[in-house]
């Protein structure tokens, strides 16, 4: 009797330890993004085998967020297949993902398999399935608008699947506001404007104003960064006469969220 209880207790303790070790370990493999400050904040780069969330405020910002997500996926896995899951509705709202556009960003359209799910449930299931397949490099789930289907439970499922196979998942949430989730990092991405120059000068590489509003193992921050299409990495934006953007104080996730909601309401 007592020995049975002892062994049960021991096994419970063991499983608790395992859970804690999993959630608390910063030992996940990481892929450097190229931006020095950012990589420092992320302790070496974007965690692999985890789920990350990228939000944008409305349909208009969707391309910037998509570009950022594509960049993350490219950094995470240069050669392995990329599964892009999206809802039918999202295509109508913000346009379809253009392969030539992806190629222009330095990604290889041949690696991309697109799944066109009719609703969020299908999309979630497919994403969990793809995250559990270790032949896949990264999985992107594109969801338009608010949905109650993508709650803490769903998010936990995705995280577990990603941890199990070591596949990185990125959630692209267009026109949505952050909600509690088990994501490793959470970003709000906007387009950053090009530095003032003569009107006949053309813009350069894609510019992102990326705000890190959740980071489970490090500080938060906000950076203007550039995606270098040729080298396929993020880098500091260095224009001589660029307007400097004040970095937001660290650990301000709540205020950032409030701001976001203001904008959505407005």
């Amino acid at each position: 009797m007592t020995s049975a209880r002892m062994s049960a207790l021991a096994s419970l303790r063991g499983s608790i330890e395992r859970i804690e070790a999993q959630s608390g370990s910063p030992s996940l493999a990481r892929a450097a993004l190229g931006h020095a400050e950012l990589d420092a904040a992320l302790q070496g780069g974007l965690a692999l085998g985890a789920v990350h969330e990228v939000f944008c405020e409305g349909g208009r910002q969707s391309a910037a967020a998509t570009g950022f997500v594509a960049g993350l996926a490219r950094r995470v896995t240069p050669r392995r297949p990329l599964i892009w899951v999206r809802q039918d509705f999202s295509e109508r709202e913000v346009g379809r993902l253009s392969m030539s556009g992806l190629a222009e960003l330095g990604l290889d359209p041949r690696r991309l398999v697109m799944v066109r799910a009719s609703d969020v449930e299908d999309a979630l299931r497919t994403t969990a399935d793809a995250l559990a397949c270790d032949a896949v490099g990264a999985v992107v789930l594109e969801v338009w608008g608010e949905t109650h289907k993508l709650d803490l439970v769903a998010s936990r499922k995705l995280t577990l699947a990603a941890q199990g196979a070591g596949v990185t998942g990125v959630l692209l949430r267009i026109a949505a506001s952050p909600a509690p989730s088990t994501a490793e990092t959470r970003w709000i991405v906007r387009a950053a404007h090009s530095p003032p120059a003569s009107p006949w000068q053309m813009w350069g590489a894609p510019l992102f104003d990326a705000e890190l509003v959740r980071n489970r193992h490090g500080p938060l921050g906000r950076w203007i960064m550039e995606w270098k299409c040729d080298e396929c990495l993020f880098s500091e934006f260095t224009a001589a006469d660029s307007q400097s953007v004040a970095a937001a104080p660290a650990h301000r996730p709540h205020q950032a969220r409030a701001q976001l909601q203001d904008r959505l309401a407005g």
């Binding site: 969707s62 391309a63 998509t66 570009g67 594509a70 913000v94 346009g95 379809r96 993902l97 253009s98 030539s100 556009g101 992806l102 190629a103 222009e104 960003l105 053309m202 813009w203 350069g204 590489a205 894609p206 299409c229």
Partner: peptide, 9 residues
Amino acid sequence: PPLRPLRLF
């Protein structure tokens, strides 16, 4: 810089 858009209607 990219000559084609990333999202196409």
